[in-house]
């Protein structure tokens, strides 16, 4: 199983989550975060904003669903045709074990 950490624009989160839910990936966790990328934030006039609000979406998915989920997030979270700085990032990490507490058994 894999943990997907997707950092997306807050205004895109509803669309991303709705699309994933219809594709059968309903379970998700989201946190409001602030961060900056390699552009060192946004410079507007003399002000530098380097704590830009984003939404972090956490999902654990089966290995074989990785490509599908990532492609889905990429296609929705991208803004404009070429994409824009600040559209976000996706990180994937391995997960050893998963337990659902109410079922009391290992597995998603």
């Amino acid at each position: 199983m894999l943990l997907i950490r997707a950092i997306v624009r807050p205004e895109k989160k509803d669309e991303v989550l709705a699309e994933l839910s219809t594709a059968g990936f309903n379970a998700a966790t989201m946190v409001d975060v602030v961060g900056r990328g390699k552009q060192k934030g946004i410079k507007i006039g003399g002000m530098v904003y380097d704590e830009i609000p984003k939404t972090l979406i956490l999902m654990v998915i089966p290995d074989d669903a990785k490509d599908k989920v990532i492609r889905m997030i990429l296609s929705i979270a991208k803004t404009g045709k070429e994409g824009t700085f600040g559209d976000g990032k996706i990180f994937v990490s391995p997960v050893d074990e998963v337990y659902t507490i109410s079922k009391g058994t290992p597995g998603l």
Binding site: D96, E97, V98, Y99, T100, I101, S102
Partner: peptide
């Protein structure tokens, strides 16, 4: 310990535990 503390009679919504390296 975490699973025991969080188990309820509702059957759904008790949460999930992930173990990552």
């Amino acid at each position: 310990a975490v699973a025991k503390a969080n188990l309820t009679e509702y059957g759904v919504g008790d949460g999930t535990i992930f173990v990552l390296p």
